[in-house]
């Protein structure tokens, strides 16, 4: 059943509506009383989660007798952003994932954020799906703040992702949806996969299979599930960043999620006017490329790749 869980009037004859599709199981077993939330669309240019939500809704609705509990799907918590290909909330300066937990006394966006938190709070697990941005392509991965790692890693391993990145805490991240929910007792996992403004079917199906595996492990799904892959779990020190030092167009010469040796050629930054190669980009360490630049134009500082390996692999 689709319900509007947060809303506000827009200027001309329209309301912003944040919708939740609640799918309630009809299993014959003793009710699990459990609830899992799938949230996506915080950033309007990240669309991979749209297909995951659609697939989940389709499969669950066709197999309600195999679901024991509630799955709440929130496909677009920034509906105006998605509708207008805008990363943030149109006419609002702050990133939506920097205003949680929100407040009823704040701006419209902060009021909506507070309503979203209120609606999700108390769920057994929440999965917040992101898809990088238009510049970078990410292998399916779970990102976990180190302060929640012990509690969340076991659940992250169920999600059929390739990689779990446990990153260090930062004050600025305390205003994300995931942080706000985790500190108030609702376990929330952040998924990053694919690239902005696109749907990568293969990744979406991979994560969807992982979500069913999670439901199975929580005793909420009696249907068959695929065997999930064993992710690599990695801390901050084992991730190496590769940034461009020159400006131009970046042309890669490696594939995504491949093994790479230290010093191996990742790609070139080329001057589009002269054709001259202005930077030969090489791997600073041995490892696997889990982030690779998708958008070709680069400035000095543009992120080219992230390599899982880093110091730990030297």
């Amino acid at each position: 059943m689709t319900t509007v869980i947060a809303s506000a009037g827009l200027a001309v004859n329209e309301r912003i509506e944040i919708r939740r599709n609640r799918i309630t199981g009809k299993s014959a077993e003793t009710p699990s009383g459990k609830r899992v939330c799938i949230v996506t669309g915080t950033h309007g240019d990240e669309l991979e989660g749209q297909y995951v939500c659609a697939e989940l809704a389709r499969i669950l609705s066709e197999n309600l007798q195999q679901l024991n509990g509630i799955v709440d799907i929130y496909p677009a918590i920034n509906p105006l952003g998605i509708d207008s290909i805008t990363r943030g909330i149109p006419l609002f300066d702050l990133d939506m994932n920097r205003i949680f937990p929100g407040t009823a006394e704040g701006t419209m966006a902060e009021c909506l954020a507070a309503d979203i938190i209120s609606d999700i709070s108390g769920a057994d697990i929440c999965i917040d799906i992101h898809s990088s941005n238009i510049y970078l392509k990410e292998i399916p991965q779970i990102r976990i703040n180190e302060i929640s790692a012990d509690e969340l890693v076991p659940y992250a391993k169920m999600l059929n992702c390739d990689f779990i990145w446990i990153h260090s805490a930062a004050t600025v991240l305390e205003s994300t949806l995931a942080y706000s929910l985790n500190v108030t007792g609702t376990k929330t996992l952040v998924v990053e996969m694919g690239v902005g403004m696109r749907i990568t079917k293969e990744y979406c199906r991979q994560l969807t299979a992982g979500i069913f595996n999670l439901l199975k492990n929580l005793g909420m799904w009696t249907g068959d599930v695929e065997k999930v892959r064993e992710p690599i779990v990695s801390g901050e020190g084992t991730v190496e960043f590769v940034n461009s030092d020159a400006d131009g167009i970046f042309v890669p010469c490696v594939e995504h999620w491949v093994d790479i040796e230290k010093g191996e050629h990742i790609g070139d930054v080329i001057n589009p006017i002269t054709g001259e190669t202005v930077e030969r980009v090489t791997a600073p360490c041995r490892g696997k490329i889990f982030t690779l630049r998708e958008f070709p134009i680069v400035y000095g500082g543009s992120l080219i790749a992230r390599i899982l390996g880093g110091e730990g692999n030297e």
Partner: peptide
């Protein structure tokens, strides 16, 4: 444009910056 030309990031949300980081972090 209000924010950075290419990636729309806000320089005033990048301090203290990072010399090996993204463009606006470097700025």
């Amino acid at each position: 444009k209000r924010f950075w030309t290419m990636d729309n990031t806000d320089i005033n949300r990048m301090f203290p910056g990072y010399e090996l980081g993204e463009t606006t972090q470097r700025i």
